[in-house]
């Protein structure tokens, strides 16, 4: 994804009503593409072929917890920022595992829309910066390799 493109936010929650509420808010306040998926396995499949900027996931879901899902998301798209949205009841276990998946942020239900927007905006900025950095590093690598090529050709020409 190029940085000029519309940012993509992936919402994963087994509760359709949560997805509808957050999607409505983001659609009203931003120009982001918002994808809502209720089954984590489907969200994994989505990420296999579609780049996203932010993944916002619930913690307690059937079959796969939010942390298991975010670990997969990290494997598939390490630069996409990962945000956990969780109810108070599972806070403790979530905190214990935060480092395992390199969470960008942790939000509690019931969530505050303004805070959620700030987190999503910051997450998109971070993802885009990381992608720009990766592109620049690649360009630098390529320039370096070109330079080495020129250098060796120069050496060959003079020696």
């Amino acid at each position: 994804m190029q940085n000029g493109e519309q940012p993509a936010v992936l919402l994963v929650d087994d509760e359709e009503m949560v997805i509808t509420s957050i999607r409505a808010f983001l659609q009203l306040e931003t120009e982001y593409e918002v994808i809502g998926i209720t089954v984590p396995e489907e969200a994994v499949r989505h990420m296999e072929t579609n780049p996203v900027d932010v993944v916002l996931s619930d913690y307690l879901m059937p079959k796969m917890t939010g942390l298991q899902f975010l670990a997969k998301a990290k494997e598939l798209q390490p630069e996409a920022a990962r945000v956990l949205l969780t109810g108070h009841a599972d806070k403790q276990s979530a905190i214990h595992a935060i480092n395992d998946v390199g969470l960008f942020q942790y939000l509690e239900k019931p969530w505050d829309n303004s805070q959620l927007l700030l987190v999503v905006q910051a997450a998109i900025e971070r993802t885009r910066l990381l992608r720009t950095l990766r592109t620049k590093v690649m360009e630098l690598d390529e320039a370096h390799s070109n330079l080495k090529d020129v250098q060796s050709r120069l050496l060959r020409a003079f020696l």
């Binding site: 949560v18 109810g87 009841a89």
Partner: peptide, 19 residues
């Protein structure tokens, strides 16, 4: 579990009212 069950719809209602 009951708190979690109630928190989810409450979260939606809070958000929706503001939206």
């Amino acid at each position: 579990g009951i708190v979690h069950e109630i928190n989810t719809p409450i979260g939606s209602i809070f958000s929706n009212t503001e939206v």
